[in-house]
Simulated assay, not measured.
Amino acid sequence: MKPPQEPTPAAIGTTVLEARDVAVSLGGTEIISGISFDVKAGEVLSIIGPNGAGKSTLLGALAGDYGYRGSITIDGTEVSDWNNPDLALRRAVLRQSNAISFPFNVVDVVKMGRAPWRLLSTVENDDRIIAQELLRSDTYQFAERTFTSLSGGERARVALARAMAQRTQVLLLDEPTAALDINYQEQVLALARRYARQGGAVIVVLHDLAAAAAYSDRVLMIDEGGMREWGEPERVLTSELVSEVYRHPVRVRTDENGELLITPVRFPDEAPASTGNDALKKEKE
Rank of each mutant, 00 (worst) to 15 (best):
L189T: 05
V158N: 06
Y195P: 08
R157F: 09
L160G: 02
R155N: 08
L180A: 03
D127V: 12
N98K: 07
G152E: 05
I182N: 03
G152M: 08
S149E: 14
H207C: 05
L160W: 11
Q166M: 12
Q96W: 01
G113V: 00
I130M: 02
V188I: 07
V109R: 06
P176H: 10
S151M: 04
R197V: 11
Q198N: 14
R197W: 00
S80V: 09
R128F: 03
A179I: 09
A156V: 09
L135T: 05
R95D: 02
V205P: 01
Y140W: 14
A212V: 00
Y184D: 00
A92Q: 10
M112G: 07
L160K: 01
Q187H: 14
V205S: 05
L94C: 03
Q185E: 10
G200Y: 03
Q141D: 12
I100N: 02
Q187K: 15
S80F: 03
R145K: 12
N105S: 11
G200N: 11
Q96G: 06
R145V: 09
N98R: 10
A131P: 07
L119S: 14
D138V: 00
F102W: 13
D127Q: 07
V202L: 04
V188D: 00
T148V: 15
A156D: 01
E186F: 02
N83V: 09
V204P: 00
A92T: 15
V79E: 07
A161N: 05
A179C: 09
V106A: 10
R157I: 04
R193V: 11
L191S: 07
